[in-house]
Amino acid sequence: MIRYFIFVPSPNVAEGHQHKNAFLMADVAGSRVITEDELDSTTLGLAICEILGDERLLAEMSQRALNAAKPDASAEIAKHILSLVKENS
């Protein structure tokens, strides 16, 4: 399965969380970030064409996203919460 991401973070979120997370994903997983003020059909179209038109880039982005993935994250979080509840009861 091929995985790649283009993020358009909202500037209207407290403390710029979406902006920070989008650029973190760009660093970690090779995602593309287009800020809302840069976003238009041309910019988005160019980003999509760049990614889909370059097999090496597409494979690299996919692999980096898979390497960064934490598929068991929700189970790990639940276990940690239950251990905290157990400690406090």
Rank of each mutant, 00 (worst) to 15 (best):
Y4M: 08
Q63K: 13
Q63V: 09
L66K: 07
A14G: 10
H17L: 12
E36P: 06
E50R: 15
R3K: 13
L46V: 12
S10Y: 02
A26K: 14
N12I: 14
L46K: 14
G53A: 06
F7A: 10
S62N: 01
H19Y: 13
A26M: 11
A59I: 07
G30F: 09
I34V: 14
E50G: 12
D37A: 06
E36M: 12
L39E: 00
A59R: 08
G30W: 10
E60W: 04
P9V: 09
I2T: 11
E15A: 15
L58M: 08
V28S: 08
I51F: 02
Y4W: 15
S41F: 07
F5E: 06
N21P: 03
E55P: 10
G45C: 05
S10W: 03
Q63N: 12
G30L: 09
K20T: 06
V13C: 11
I2G: 01
D27G: 15
R64D: 01
A26T: 06
R56N: 10
S41V: 14
G45E: 00
A26D: 01
R56K: 15
V33G: 00
G45K: 07
A26P: 05
N12D: 12
Q63S: 09
S41M: 10
L39N: 00
A47I: 06
L58N: 04
E38F: 05
D27L: 15
D40E: 00
G16D: 00
G16I: 05
G53I: 11
R56D: 08
H19E: 06
P11W: 03
F23Q: 04
I2H: 04
C49Y: 10
E38Q: 10
I48L: 02
I51Q: 00
